[in-house]
């Protein structure tokens, strides 16, 4: 953990750099969604836009987590705790999704579909 004054001053410089990166990424995410010239995939909102938006958001989240929240020099135990939560959240999402997209199909009726 940064404790000495020099280390803290260096850390502060890093924070400013990351802040500027975050600002650029924020502008980028809005630009990609609003400027027609930057619209990837099909016209309007489609899967490609969703993936791009989530990628940019994940990158920003990574910056905040690893640098502002000091996760990059945190103990393994913390990684484990936080990582466990992320794994379980993903389990919640993917397994529930599996249940939704795998209904019983009987004579053309899709039973168990959430509609």
């Amino acid at each position: 953990m940064a404790d000495s004054p020099e280390a803290i001053h260096k850390a502060k410089k890093n924070y400013i750099i990351v802040f500027l990166i975050l600002m650029c990424m924020t502008v980028a995410t809005v630009a990609v969604a609003t400027i027609p010239a930057l619209d990837i995939g099909k016209h309007g909102f489609d899967t490609a836009d969703m993936i791009l938006g989530l990628l940019i958001a994940s990158f920003k989240a990574g910056c905040v987590m690893f640098i502002f929240m000091h996760l990059n020099h945190e103990k393994k135990l913390i990684y484990f705790l936080f990582g466990l939560a992320i794994v379980l959240a993903l389990c919640l999402y993917f397994i529930t999704k599996l249940a939704f997209i795998d209904p019983i199909i009987f004579e053309g009726f899709r039973l168990g579909e959430p509609k």
Binding site: L84, A85, L88, T96
Partner: peptide
């Protein structure tokens, strides 16, 4: 960090619900 882990589950549940 434990508390944040539980918050990940909370907002994870909300975002999952949004997607579904």
């Amino acid at each position: 960090w434990l508390f944040l882990a539980s918050e990940v589950m909370l907002f994870g549940g909300l975002f999952s619900s949004y997607i579904f």
